[in-house]
Measured scan of single mutants.
Amino acid sequence: VTVHVNRYTYHFDNPEEAEKFAREMAKRLNMTVEIHGNTLKVE
């Protein structure tokens, strides 16, 4: 599972951890999480 935050890319083996990380980053940056299959984008 890949998480994109701005120009950074993070890889996770565990989808739940990836989503938790993405949501935490989105909250911190006041952004939203978009899910595209195995890719989560924080925008």
Rank of each mutant, 00 (worst) to 15 (best):
V42L: 14
T39H: 12
E16W: 12
V33N: 01
E24H: 09
E24K: 12
K27M: 12
N14G: 06
H36T: 10
H11A: 05
A22R: 02
R23P: 00
Y10I: 05
A26M: 04
E24R: 12
I35S: 07
L40E: 04
F12D: 00
K20T: 10
M31C: 13
L29K: 03
P15G: 07
F12N: 00
E43L: 15
V42W: 03
T32I: 14
A18K: 00
E16R: 10
E43T: 15
H11C: 15
V1E: 01
M31H: 05
Y10D: 00
T32V: 14
K27C: 14
E43A: 14
V3P: 01
H11N: 06
V1A: 09
E43I: 15
V5E: 01
V3N: 02
N14A: 06
N30W: 04
L29V: 03
D13H: 07
L40P: 04
F21A: 02
R23W: 14
K41Y: 15
D13L: 09
M25N: 02
H11M: 08
H11W: 14
D13I: 09
I35Q: 09
R28Q: 10
N30L: 04
N30G: 14
E17F: 06
T9Q: 10
E43D: 11
E17S: 08
T2D: 08
E17P: 02
L40Q: 03
F12Y: 02
T39C: 15
N38P: 07
V3H: 01
L29E: 04
A22H: 01
G37S: 04
A22F: 02
K41Q: 08
R28H: 07
A26L: 03
L40I: 15
A18N: 00
E19L: 15
N30V: 03
N6C: 15
E17M: 08
M31K: 04
N6D: 11
L29M: 07
Y8I: 13
L29Q: 04
K41H: 14
H4P: 01
V1I: 13
R28F: 08
E17D: 12
E16K: 11
T32W: 05
E16L: 11
N6Q: 11
V5K: 02
A26H: 02
A26N: 02
Y8D: 10
M25I: 14
F12V: 00
H11P: 02
A26D: 01
V42D: 04
V1G: 03
E43N: 12
F12L: 01
N38L: 07
R23K: 09
E16T: 10
V5I: 13
H11L: 09
F21M: 02
N38I: 05
N14Y: 06
D13E: 11
A22P: 00
R28Y: 08
L29H: 08
V1H: 08
E34K: 15
R7V: 06
E34I: 15
V33Q: 01
E16D: 11
F12M: 01
R28T: 06
F21V: 01
A26Q: 03
E34Q: 15
G37I: 06
T32Y: 08
A22C: 05
D13M: 09
M31W: 05
D13F: 07
K20D: 08
N38A: 07
M31F: 06
V3T: 01
N6E: 10
N14D: 14
N30E: 05
H11G: 02
E17V: 08
Y10H: 03
L40Y: 10
V42C: 08
T2Y: 11
H11Y: 14
Y10V: 04
V42E: 04
K27G: 08
P15C: 15
T2N: 06
F12I: 01
R23M: 09
K41W: 15
L40R: 03
E17Y: 06
R7H: 13
